[in-house]
Simulated scan of single mutants.
Amino acid sequence: MGKDSRIEIKVVNPSKGDNVVHPVGPGHPTSASKPSNSSPVPHERRRPQQDRERERQRRARQEQGATELKPFKKWVTWMVPGFVLVNIVVFMISMFINNCPKNSASCFAPFLGRFSFQPFKENPLLGPSSSTLEKMGALEVSKIAQGHQAWRLITCIWLHAGVFHILANMLSLVFIGIRLEQEFGFVRIGLLYVIAGFGGSLMSSLFIQTGISVGASGALFGLLGSMLSELLTNWTIYANKLAALLTLLLIIVINLLVGILPHVDNFAHIGGFLSGFLLGFVFLIRPQFGYVSKKHVPAGYIGASHKPKYKPYQCALWVISLVLLIVGEIQRLVMGVVANS
Results as ranks from 00 to 15, higher is better:
249 L>M: 13
134 E>R: 07
276 G>N: 13
324 L>R: 12
51 D>I: 09
102 K>N: 13
193 Y>L: 15
315 C>L: 07
221 F>V: 12
45 R>E: 10
233 T>G: 04
220 L>E: 15
201 S>D: 11
252 I>S: 03
287 P>T: 14
133 L>Q: 07
181 E>F: 00
302 I>R: 15
236 T>N: 10
137 G>S: 03
307 K>V: 04
7 I>F: 03
232 L>N: 08
317 L>D: 00
154 I>E: 14
196 A>M: 03
116 S>V: 07
56 R>C: 04
254 I>P: 00
58 R>Q: 08
84 V>P: 06
15 S>H: 00
166 I>T: 11
12 V>R: 06
259 G>E: 02
286 R>E: 01
73 K>R: 09
237 I>Q: 00
73 K>T: 07
93 I>N: 01
203 M>I: 05
68 E>V: 04
106 S>T: 15
18 D>S: 09
196 A>G: 05
299 A>I: 07
147 G>H: 13
112 L>G: 08
44 E>Q: 13
94 S>P: 03
241 K>G: 02
313 Y>K: 01
17 G>K: 02
69 L>E: 00
252 I>K: 11
226 S>C: 08
72 F>P: 00
54 R>W: 04
103 N>Y: 07
231 L>G: 04
41 V>A: 11
83 F>L: 15
264 V>Q: 08
57 Q>R: 14
25 G>P: 02
39 S>C: 12
297 V>S: 09
250 L>A: 15
223 L>R: 05
197 G>L: 07
259 G>Y: 10
9 I>V: 12
285 I>A: 09
262 P>N: 06
250 L>W: 07
132 T>I: 08
90 V>A: 06
54 R>C: 02
97 I>R: 00
89 V>C: 08
113 G>V: 13
161 A>G: 14
48 P>M: 11
267 F>V: 03
34 K>P: 09
41 V>R: 11
102 K>F: 13
99 N>C: 03
51 D>T: 14
16 K>D: 00
312 P>K: 06
63 E>P: 00
249 L>T: 12
141 V>K: 08
248 L>D: 14
248 L>A: 10
130 S>D: 01
23 P>D: 10
307 K>R: 13
125 L>H: 01
92 M>W: 04
